[in-house]
Design a protein around this nucleic acid. Structure first.
Lengths: 113, 113
DNA sequence: TAACTAAGAAATTCTTAGCCC
DNA sequence: GGGCTAAGAATTTCTTAGTTA
């Protein structure tokens, strides 16, 4: 399960190195990689931080390692959710402003396409 | 921790309804909401599926409900997708404008709902 | 040196049953 | 009905110590 992902994320580093960084014993980390036990949520978070992936990725493997370049930043998502609660008028205003920015973007960098 | 998020996601549904859907006892689900215990990974996944959010969101609260079924206007969705291609500067501008509108909305209707 | 594991200890979760509002 | 929780049972994890390669 999550073990395999940990294994490949670790690469050529030793188990001890990872274990030290996240503050668990060697044996404990080994258990995680071999599926003998699963990390508690706190440790899972530390592992995700250390490997620079989301907990989602560790758990499901369905997301890609979200290194630096995440398309969808949280701020944008929050803004989007906010917009859904807007009155029709505000919604319209928001959309218009976004379209305005979109035009500006176009001119800034002449795209192919 | 994750309990609070479960609570708000549940809304006005009963604990029993959620519990039945994910296949755990009432008491067990109650424990999750009140932080007396934490769901194992399998149950966490079921909860995330049921509430249509990522496990990341349940664990950290940092991500949004998965945009899979962000219903609402198509126009808004298009605008959202456009924003993802924006430069950081334009993104920032868009977010600021949305926040400005958000404030305006707040003042428009001082009382809840 | 690095990784793995058996076995018991320790910690956590789950169930039952009941209580409260 | 709907939600909460004490106590013990059940399950899981963690540590130690030792084995394997």
């Amino acid at each position: 399960m999550i073990g395999g992902r940990l294994k490949s994320l670790r690469g050529k580093k030793t188990q001890e190195e990872i274990a030290n960084h996240i503050g668990v014993s060697r044996a404990r980390y080994s258990h995680y990689e071999n599926g003998r036990s699963e990390p508690d949520y706190e440790t899972l978070q530390k592992l995700a931080d250390y490997f620079k992936v989301t907990t989602d990725y560790l758990l499901t493997g369905k997301e890609k390692p979200s290194d630096e370049d995440m398309f969808s930043d949280p701020d944008l998502q929050i803004a989007y959710r906010d917009m859904q609660d807007f009155s029709p008028e505000s919604k319209q205003q928001a959309i218009e402003f976004i379209n305005y920015l979109k035009e500006k973007e176009k001119n800034r960098k002449p795209k192919n396409k």
